[in-house]
Simulated scan of single mutants.
Amino acid sequence: MPVEKHSLSRRGLLKAASVAVAAGTFGAASLSAAPRAVAAPAGVLGTIIDFSAGVPSAASVKAAGHIGAIRYVSQRRPGAEWMLGKPVSLKETQDFANNGLFTASIYQFGRDTTADWKRGAAGVAEHAPQAIALHRAAGGPTGVPIYVAIDDNPTQQQYTTLIRPYLQGFQTALKAAGYSMGIYGNYSTIEWAIADKLGQFFWQHNWGSNGRIHPAIHLHQFQNSAGKVGGVEVDLNHVYKANWGQWQAGKTATPQVPANPGTPANPGTPSTRYPDINIGGSSISGQQLEQGLSLAQQIAQAIR
Rank of each mutant, 00 (worst) to 15 (best):
E4A: 13
L14D: 02
K15V: 04
A17S: 14
V21T: 15
F26Y: 10
A29Q: 07
L31M: 04
S32E: 14
A34M: 07
A37P: 10
P41H: 09
V44T: 15
V44E: 12
G46E: 02
I49V: 13
F51N: 00
G54E: 03
A58H: 09
A59K: 15
K62N: 04
K62F: 08
G68I: 06
V73W: 01
V73D: 00
V73N: 02
E81T: 11
G85P: 00
V88P: 05
E92N: 00
D95G: 03
F96C: 01
N99T: 09
F102I: 08
Q108L: 06
D112T: 14
D112I: 10
T114P: 01
A115S: 13
D116E: 09
W117K: 10
G120L: 11
G120W: 02
G120V: 13
G120P: 03
V124N: 04
A125P: 08
P129M: 09
Q130S: 15
I132L: 05
I132F: 14
R136Q: 14
G139Q: 13
G140H: 05
I150H: 00
I150Q: 00
N153G: 02
N153H: 13
T155G: 13
Q158L: 08
L162D: 04
L162H: 00
Y166I: 07
Q171T: 01
Q171H: 03
L174S: 06
Y179N: 06
T189C: 02
E191F: 02
D196L: 08
L198Y: 01
F202R: 03
Q204E: 05
I213M: 04
I213R: 11
I213S: 10
I217G: 02
H218D: 14
F222R: 13
K228N: 08
G231E: 04
E233K: 02
L236R: 14
H238N: 05
H238V: 01
N243M: 04
N243F: 04
K251M: 13
K251Q: 09
T254M: 09
P264W: 15
G268C: 06
P275F: 03
N278F: 07
G286L: 06
Q291D: 15
Q297R: 15
A300K: 02
A302L: 15
